[in-house]
Amino acid sequence: MKIVKFLLMILFLFSINIKNLLADNAKMVKGLEIFNEIAGCAGCHTLKAAGSEANIGPNLDTVSLTEESVKDMVTHGLGVMPAYGEGILTKEEIDIVSFYVANSVGK
């Protein structure tokens, strides 16, 4: 009985991981779309993983960043970069594109 419980627990944890992985992959796909199409980040930034080569803002592959720092920058903007949190992107979109960028730099 204990073995069955143990196996069920393993199966449960495994299913959570699968679910998370699927969710993460969906965020990466959506994040790329936001980066290149919806927000147009690719119009100003180089990010090899997204195939973008623009040179207005910093080359993201050269910047040390975290998901939180990207979120902060995207939300509030800096210099010529607009504040995307002020009516350009939804909070969910900012979360997703920040996840995407933080997991794509240097790849």
């Binding site: 990466m28 994040g31 790329l32 290149n36 100003c44 993983a49």
Partner: peptide, 17 residues
């Protein structure tokens, strides 16, 4: 995590122009 590296057409920077 699977690396997402497909390319979209880059054609928007409207709000900055």
């Amino acid at each position: 995590m699977k690396k997402i590296k497909q390319k979209f057409n880059i054609k928007r920077r409207n709000f900055l122009t």
